[in-house]
C-alpha cells in the first residue's frame, strides 16, 4: 500500500483520471450540496415550481425571514420536534445491530469457512435465497404475530429483525474473509491443546478486525438508513431518524415541515462523514483481507 507501481503514471493519464474523478465527485455530491444550501432556505424557494434559481437567490426566504438564510428548518427539527430523541434511538439501534450482527456473523462465518463439508455450500445458497425475500413481504408478515405477542413497537424487536435480515449478507462477507485467514493459525493452536472455541477466541479474534470492520460498515449503513423495518415496527416514541424524517413529510406535506425533513437529512449525514473519515483505512484493509480474495 505504499507508493506503488500503479501510482507511477504518465501525466496525461493522471490528468484524465483526476478529471474523471472531479466529474464524478460533482455528480455524486451535487444533490447533497444543493440540499445543504437549500436547507437554509424556506420551502417555497428550495422546492420552487416557478423558477429553480429561486433556490439560489431565495426571494421568499428574504420576504419571510428578512435574511438570505434561515435556520428555521434546523430549529424546527431539533428544538421543536426533538429530533435528537430519534437520533438517540438510532444510536441504540445501530450500535446493537452492528454488535449483534457481527457477533453472530463472525461465529457463523468462521464455522462456514472452516467446516469443509459440502453442506456449507448449501447453507450459503439458502442464505442467499433468504436475502432474496422482499423486505415489504417480510415486514407485513411480522405485524400480526408481533402485535399478538406484544412485541410490536419496541426497539429490541426492530433490532433483532434488522440483525436477521442482515445475516445473509454478513455471513457471505465474513465467510470469504475467514477463508483468507490461513488455516494453520487456528489449527496449530488446536494441536497445542486449545478447543475450537479457544482457538477462535485466542488466535482468530485478534487478526479478524479489518474484515469485521468492513462488514460492520455495511451493517451500520443498513441499520442507519433502514425505513421498511423501522417505520412499520416501531411506535412513535421509539422512532429512529429515518421514520422521524418521514413523519416530517407526513401524509400531506405541511408547510415548513418539509424543510424540517431536509434539515434533518443534512444533520443525519454529518456523523457519517466523521465515521467514514475515521474508518476509511480500516474499510480498505478490511475488504482487502476479506471478500477480495474470496
Amino acid at each position: 500500500m505504499t507508493a506503488n507501481v500503479a501510482d507511477r503514471r504518465s501525466l496525461p493519464l493522471q490528468a484524465v483520471l483526476v478529471g474523471f474523478l472531479i466529474v464524478w465527485i460533482i455528480v455524486a455530491a451535487f444533490p447533497f450540496l444543493w440540499t445543504l444550501w437549500g436547507s437554509f432556505k424556506v420551502e417555497g424557494d428550495f422546492f420552487s415550481k416557478a423558477d429553480w434559481t429561486n433556490a439560489l437567490t431565495g426571494p421568499m426566504t428574504r420576504t419571510e425571514t428578512g435574511g438570505a438564510f434561515t435556520g428555521r428548518g434546523y430549529q424546527g427539527a431539533w428544538v421543536t420536534n426533538e429530533f435528537w430523541r430519534a437520533g438517540l434511538n438510532t444510536l441504540i439501534v445501530v450500535v446493537s445491530v452492528v454488535t449483534i450482527s457481527l457477533t453472530f456473523g463472525t461465529l457463523g462465518g468462521y464455522a462456514l469457512a472452516r467446516s469443509g463439508y459440502r453442506y456449507v455450500f448449501w447453507v450459503l445458497i439458502v442464505a442467499l435465497v433468504f436475502r432474496a425475500m422482499p423486505h415489504v413481504t417480510l415486514v407485513s408478515g411480522y405485524l400480526l404475530p408481533f402485535f399478538q405477542w406484544n412485541l410490536w413497537g419496541h426497539l429490541p424487536t426492530a433490532i433483532i429483525v434488522l440483525v436477521a435480515i442482515n445475516q445473509p449478507f454478513t455471513l457471505w462477507m465474513l465467510t470469504s474473509f475467514f477463508q483468507n485467514i490461513p488455516k494453520d493459525l487456528d489449527e496449530s493452536a488446536m494441536v497445542d491443546g486449545c478447543s475450537r472455541f479457544q482457538a477462535f477466541r485466542l488466535v482468530i479474534i485478534p487478526v479478524m478486525w479489518p474484515g469485521v470492520i468492513t462488514t460492520g460498515l455495511f451493517s451500520f449503513l443498513l441499520a442507519y438508513n433502514d425505513f421498511a423495518v423501522t417505520a412499520m415496527l416501531l411506535n412513535q416514541e421509539n422512532q429512529t431518524m429515518v421514520p422521524k424524517i418521514a413523519s416530517f413529510l407526513g401524509t400531506t406535506q405541511t408547510k415548513g415541515n418539509v424543510m424540517f425533513a431536509v434539515s434533518a437529512v443534512v444533520s443525519a449525514t454529518a456523523p457519517l462523514f466523521l465515521l467514514v473519515m475515521f474508518f476509511q483505512r480500516q474499510i480498505v484493509s478490511g475488504l482487502t483481507a476479506g471478500a477480495v480474495k474470496g
Binding site: 407485513s140 405485524l143 400480526l144 402485535f147 399478538q148 406484544n150 410490536w152 417505520a231 412499520m232 411506535n235 412513535q236 421514520p243 418521514a246 413523519s247 407526513g250 401524509t251
Partner: peptide, 18 residues
C-alpha cells in the same frame, strides 16, 4: 398512546386483530 403515521392503514388491522 398515540401513533399517527402514513402507514396507519397497514398497522390498524393487524394491531386490532391481536
Amino acid at each position: 398512546k398515540v401513533n399517527l403515521t402514513k402507514d396507519h392503514e397497514k398497522l390498524n388491522a393487524p394491531g386490532m386483530t391481536a
